[in-house]
């Protein structure tokens, strides 16, 4: 026999409730380095107006944000900065890699440009294009919201999946600069 509930009471799972709250209050951290940053600005400006999709609160302090949008190429001098800012953000946090350069290095297959930030930090959503149009970025944010709603748990167990843990591709290039190889991964430890 069903329990009689008043009209203004709904039943849900706690996980879904938490995900629903999280997905609709994404605070982006614009890590804009190059051309894609201009499209990021255009996305936030008058015509495209990201506020319609609940992710318009751009904050420049990583402590306040939970979505990092890496817009533009990341070069080797910038990568430690990127990593430090990523580490300063609080969990749960997500990362959108906007544009070809951030995702793969794009046309810049040169000595200085990191060939895809996903080698060094975890990435949740890739936006193709050079630069992507604002509509594409908006679509990526909507997709990320879907992903958070469908996969999210209140304890963040989805982040423990093996595919989310490891950098996505083989690290083939050897390090130099007279240092010992720094690609030795620390052993996987089990959280909780």
């Amino acid at each position: 026999m069903a329990i009689e509930l008043p009209d203004n009471v709904m039943v849900s799972k706690l996980d879904q409730l938490a995900s629903w709250c999280r997905k609709n209050s994404l605070w982006p951290m614009p890590f804009a380095t190059a051309c894609c940053g201009i499209e990021l600005m255009a996305t936030g400006a008058s015509r495209h107006d990201l506020a319609r999709f609940g992710a318009e609160v751009f904050r420049f302090s990583p402590r306040q944000c939970d979505l990092m949008i890496v817009a533009g190429r990341v070069v080797m001098k910038m990568l430690p900065v990127l990593q430090r800012i990523w580490q300063q953000m609080h969990e749960p946090k997500w990362c959108i890699s906007m544009g070809a350069c951030a995702s793969t290095g794009g046309v810049f297959d040169t000595y200085a440009v990191v060939q895809g930030i996903d080698r060094f930090i975890p990435v949740d959503m890739y936006v193709p294009g050079c630069p992507p149009r604002p509509e594409q970025l908006i679509q990526a944010i909507i997709d990320l919201q879907d992903k958070i709603q469908n996969e999210g748990t209140i304890l963040g167990q989805e982040f423990d999946m093996a595919s989310r843990q490891q950098p996505k591709r083989a690290l083939v290039e050897l390090p130099v600069l007279g240092q010992s190889p720094t690609f030795v991964r620390p052993p996987l430890e089990v959280r909780r």
Partner: peptide, 8 residues
């Protein structure tokens, strides 16, 4: 040089 970093 460009990939001489630790992954996070």
């Amino acid at each position: 040089e460009r990939h001489n970093f630790t992954a996070i």
